[in-house]
């Protein structure tokens, strides 16, 4: 049976909510499970996602038609290779305009490509409004809320805020100490190299990093399993 091709879109209209970290961790997840992945960094100037994963990630200028072709023409290919878009916040509005204009959802549906919006929530009303708009704009497309507690913690005075987002599923990226975070986002030593491919005599990773990454990757695995179970034809 041919498997679905997922397109993960890490997005938010707001800056500093952790889209790049999520895109990077997801790339790491596919790398450590020995799968090819294709990434798109929509920050054409100084994108960290492309810097962290230069081999698998293309830099895209979505304001230019060439850039749109370089990305969307590949996003609709049902080749079972997961695609990850790190949507830079200034490109947020343009991305969805272009997607609607070129008929991305219709083509994805026709070709068996499944877009998943990894919407990065924060405490602002703008974040909630934009997410609700997205739900109305792309009905039927899965929105998974990402709560990055280190980058954009939600207001503890409003514990029910997250439940107002139009989704049933989500990911929680726990906070991480500064030393471990620096190691996790060091372009010189990718996480896979640091934690999985390190030589025996390498120094131990910073405290907290292994537990943290295992927690996050387990959530990605759970997400995939949920979809795999939903796609099972002979399960009752």
């Amino acid at each position: 049976m041919r498997r679905r091709t997922f397109v993960y879109i890490a997005c938010s209209p707001n800056p500093r909510v952790g889209t790049t970290l999520t895109a990077s961790l997801l790339t790491t997840y596919f790398a450590v499970t020995n799968r090819t992945v294709m990434g798109f960094d929509t920050n054409p100037y100084d994108g960290d996602f492309a810097r962290l994963h230069p081999k698998s990630t293309s830099v895209i200028d979505i304001a230019a038609t060439r850039g749109q072709i370089d990305m969307f023409d590949r996003l609709v290919v049902p080749d079972e290779t997961p695609k990850i878009v790190d949507l830079w916040h200034p490109a947020y509005r343009r991305f969805f305009e272009v997607a609607d204009n070129v008929g991305f959802l219709d083509e994805a549906d026709r070709s068996g490509v499944t877009p998943v919006l990894l919407y990065h929530a924060d405490a602002s009303q703008k974040s909630l409004d934009a997410c609700q708009d997205l739900g109305a704009r792309w009905p039927g497309v899965e929105i998974a809320i990402v709560s990055n507690e280190g980058a954009a913690s939600l207001d503890p005075a409003h514990p029910g805020h997250l439940s107002r987002f139009p989704t049933e599923h989500g990911f929680r990226i726990p906070p991480l100490n500064a030393v471990a975070m620096a190691a996790a986002t060091d372009p010189e030593t990718p996480l896979k190299e640091l934690l999985w491919d390190a030589p025996d005599d390498a120094p131990p990773p910073p405290d907290g990093l292994i537990d943290w990454i295992e927690d996050v990757l387990a959530q990605f695995r759970a997400f995939e399993l949920r979809h795999a179970l939903a796609d099972m034809e002979f399960l009752w």
Binding site: Q68, F72, V102, G103, E107
Partner: peptide
């Protein structure tokens, strides 16, 4: 033909 360009023409 490019999917994006076909999409622009369609719209």
């Amino acid at each position: 033909n490019s999917f994006v360009l076909r999409g622009y023409v369609r719209t």
